[in-house]
């Protein structure tokens, strides 16, 4: 099993992508897509990436839900900032915060979440000190942002990726 399909998750995703692209589930396409996905999985094994280990699928689901809600909310917040004339003076700025996660996949996920959310932008992560430089569009309270990222995302990412 592991020798034939070294990366089961990647292989399954590729097969699903193939079927979506061809928009059919005929046996021929499943066979063809399966062959391509298997070869791609084998090729990936030659590159020897660090194994991805997802420990809690429930945490994945929870994180997905939280991120979806947060993206919707920050869309509304950024839309208000851009479209409406603001009464108070808005401050945007850089913040630095320490991260507890070190797993590269967890860091990548956090980077994608933070950058995809309007209003926060991942700038630079320092591997030796574990500190992250962020830019925030509406910086009211620095502590509030740090607490939000550490509580909402980092805790779940620690649960998912060990």
């Amino acid at each position: 099993m592991t020798r034939l399909v070294p990366h089961p998750l990647l292989t399954t995703c590729l097969l699903v992508m193939w079927l979506l692209l061809t928009q059919s589930v005929s046996p021929g396409q499943i066979l063809l897509g399966g062959i391509v996905a298997l070869i791609a999985g084998k090729t990936m094994a030659l590159l020897r990436p660090d194994p991805v280990e997802i420990r809690s699928w429930r945490a994945v689901l929870r994180l997905t839900g939280i991120v979806a809600v947060d993206i919707l909310r920050s869309n509304l917040a950024v839309g208000r900032i851009v479209a409406l004339p603001s009464r108070r003076r808005r401050v945007s700025g850089f913040i630095r915060l320490p991260l507890a996660i070190t797993n590269p996949y967890a860091l990548t996920t956090l980077a994608i979440i933070l950058t995809a959310t309007p209003g926060t932008l991942w700038l630079q992560y320092n591997r030796t000190t574990g500190s992250l430089l962020l830019h925030v569009l509406d910086l009211v309270d620095e502590e509030e942002w740090i607490r939000l990222i550490k509580h909402r995302y980092e805790r779940l990412l620690l649960e998912i990726f060990a």
């Binding site: 839309g79 959310t117 830019h135």
Partner: peptide, 24 residues
């Protein structure tokens, strides 16, 4: 609205935020 942010926001670092509205 996201693209309008490219016009209305003042600095580059602020402008980077607004097009993500269109992509999400």
């Amino acid at each position: 609205i996201g693209s309008m942010g490219l016009l209305r926001l003042k600095t580059f670092y602020e402008r980077v935020h607004s097009p993500t509205m269109g992509t999400t």
